[in-house]
């Protein structure tokens, strides 16, 4: 039993990653990550989604260096120009370059989506895992709160919060996060319920592990993959909600180049200058689609059941 399978030469990085037995914690983690990566690459749609998102992040970071225009500077002599060499996506009703505004808007969109994920993900995970593991009154109270949140359509709920808090990007983020955590909590609870009676939780309990340690170190890691998948798939909805709030004038305020707000202001020129609405609309669609494809692929990568 003590012998290890014969290890092939580990001189190359690939050999090191694919060696049958890891010899250090770092190598073991790298090998696990490598296997996940290979499963992701095997799913072409997911890879396409990932590439689109990476390109978007690149554009959001380096966008200002890629365009000579200012997203806010108005130039009425160049208003409503159709797409051309100087303005690949045309200009809007105030003469601003639409491509520049899309690039700056990508920052806002990604920032909002990331903030919502960072707020709603941990809240949902903590509430769900704790409720599912502890059960009893904790579970009943937490799940009834979730039920109440889930009984409103999320956009309506977000609208109500924004109406109470006042319009603006920060409030839109808070409003969307408040409506995004309950489904995640419910999902995490379902996962926690499946493992709370498992032998490995019982084994940890008889090592003397506290409830806090059990939830944090044993229950949450099991819930995490489905929560990450859910959030990735929800990203599309979050972006649409953010754009919807912008469109209704309750999210980002003009002259901010937020995509939903751009779509809203382009609406009145839709018949004469289609690019004003079509370009931000297409941007929203592409990003939402990319998140959906990636989320689908993550299901293959992160699902622990095939291990």
């Amino acid at each position: 039993m003590t012998d290890l399978p014969g290890s092939p030469p580990q001189s190359t990085l690939r050999g090191w990653l694919e060696a049958p037995g890891a010899t250090s914690p770092g190598q073991a983690r790298a090998q696990a990550a490598w296997r996940s990566w290979q499963r992701l690459v095997a799913n072409k749609a997911a890879l396409a989604g990932l590439i689109v998102l990476l390109a978007l992040i690149f554009l959001a970071v380096f966008g200002p260096a890629l365009t000579p225009y200012d997203p806010m500077a108005q130039n009425l002599s160049e208003r409503l120009l159709p797409p051309s060499g100087a303005h690949p996506f045309g200009t809007d009703d105030l003469g601003r370059d639409i491509m520049t505004r899309i690039l700056y808007g990508a920052r806002i969109t990604l920032m909002m989506a990331a903030l919502v994920a960072v707020i709603a993900g941990p809240i949902g995970l903590i509430v769900g895992a704790t409720a599912g593991y502890l059960g009893g009154w904790t579970d009943i109270v937490a799940m009834r709160v979730v039920d109440i949140f889930l009984s409103f359509p999320s956009l309506i709920l977000a609208l109500a919060f924004v109406a109470a808090l006042g319009p603006g990007i920060e409030n839109a983020v808070i409003a969307i996060a408040l409506s995004a955590w309950p489904p995640i909590a419910r999902l995490a609870r379902a996962e926690a319920l499946t493992v709370r009676k498992s032998d490995y939780i019982a084994a940890a309990r008889i090592q003397g592990a506290s409830r806090f340690r059990l939830i944090l170190r044993h229950v949450m890691p099991v819930c995490l993959p489905s929560v990450v998948i859910r959030i990735t798939l929800n990203m599309a909805g979050i972006i649409l909600t953010a754009a919807g709030l912008g469109f209704l004038g309750l999210g980002a305020q003009p002259p901010s180049p937020e995509w939903g707000a751009m779509l809203a202001s382009g609406r009145q020129f839709m018949l004469t200058s289609w690019w004003l609405a079509a370009i931000p609309g297409a941007a929203i669609m592409v990003v939402s689609l990319a998140f959906n494809l990636l989320g689908d692929g993550l299901r293959d990568v992160l699902d622990p059941r095939d291990d």
Binding site: A28, A204, Q207, G208, A209, R213, P221
Partner: peptide
Amino acid sequence: FQDPYGSLHPRRMIRATLAEPLEIH
């Protein structure tokens, strides 16, 4: 425990599983 397929946490390295009682105590 009876079932060694169920009594080890599937997402934790053996080292983490074995280090746990030592950390707790």
